[in-house]
Design a binder for these strands. Structure first.
Lengths: 200, 200
DNA sequence: ATTATCTATAGATCTATAGATAATGC
DNA sequence: ATTATCTATAGATCTATAGATAATGC
């Protein structure tokens, strides 16, 4: 029954990965520990050797979700050196992003849930939001001031709101128009940004 | 024990009102029927004479939440005939709105939850979103075309995202800056709107 | 000897239903 | 006679814990 420490650590990472997806899909309250552990290939009994509580897992899974969102943005930016910001915006405001809650932005999927959670989860979200803002600031060609810029905050707000609203309506045409309207608005906001061809 | 039909109908309305607030506060999965009925001054047993299921109540409570949001927008617009749009925007992007989830915009509080709910709840949200867009279209001075305008969609997306993000961070200063950045961006988008002094 | 995972379970809570009760509505 | 609400409960599920098991790590 017992596995090696190496394997135990791998199992723990799998639980966090799986939880980061299933929480985004069902909400923090929409899935139980039994189903989470089963999806990770374990039983519920193993949970409390790995995590202090469901809240603890929620905080770690949130952090993980922001990490994979960051990795995806970086990869897309690197693949489009001529206009990395436009590429990141297009990815965020795509119908594919709307369709894949499980792998999408945690702010859209869990932002409202996070506002109701304990301090651990909220800390993960606050850090994730600041990372988004720094990231956008750099893509906008801003010098790395310590304060996030209003422009970055407006862009993030618009994109998060648009994907949220596009998911809340069944009408696919309306959903698409939300994403397009946000894209136009955000591209307008980012116009005038220095195009250095550099990113990260 | 039995009450008059009049009183029974009043009780039903109270349940819907209370649920529209408590769902916004705790999420659809964050509060049970027992607590909802208790908050309405009844016991859980009375629930199923009034509603078909929790989903049914969720759909009706969502509709009610959009109605009271609409009433509030109308009142604020009527009280500020010189610039009703600016007044509605200022209300939406206020720290008071951020603080009162229970009485605030259902899109911010429950938009992500709604995307995971059944068709009844989603229908309430779709109708509520279309109402917001028509409302903003009129305030922008647009003639009432059948299609919501991209401008109205961008404004709604930005405001919903900004309040959502402002609630997800603990840092009050950052929260305020999100709202301010969104206000500036949205006022820029709405510039050029016809100022007729008429509303509704 | 230690420990990662398992099965089993405690105790609380969830949605939904059943039957009793007491007031309304005819 | 009808029925709105109550108490009580069924059956499922939730988080968390306890103790058994079997493999690792020393």
């Amino acid at each position: 029954m017992r596995v090696s420490r190496d394997q135990a650590e791998k199992n723990r990472q799998t639980v966090i990965d799986v939880a980061s997806q299933l929480f985004r899909e069902h909400g923090f309250d929409g899935i139980g520990l039994k189903d989470l552990m089963k999806a990770a290939g374990l039983t519920q009994g193993a949970f409390y050797k790995q995590f202090a509580s469901k809240d603890d897992l929620a905080a770690q899974a949130s952090k993980r979700a922001f990490e994979s969102a960051y990795r995806l943005r970086s990869a897309v930016a690197a693949a489009n050196p001529q206009d990395p910001l436009a590429a990141v915006i297009a990815l965020f405001l795509s119908m594919e992003h709307r369709a894949t809650r499980m792998d999408g932005c945690p702010l859209v999927a869990l932002g409202a849930d996070a506002a109701r959670q304990g301090p651990e989860v909220k800390a993960s979200f606050e850090a994730g939001i600041k990372e988004y803002l720094e990231n956008f600031g750099r893509l906008l060609g801003e010098v790395g001031g310590e304060e996030p810029s209003g422009k970055a905050m407006a862009i993030l707000s618009t994109m998060v709101g648009a994907v949220l609203l596009s998911r809340a309506v069944n009408d696919e045409r309306l959903a698409k128009r939300f994403l397009q309207a946000a894209a136009e608005s955000v591209m307008g906001l980012s116009a005038g940004a220095v195009q250095t061809g550099q990113h990260q």
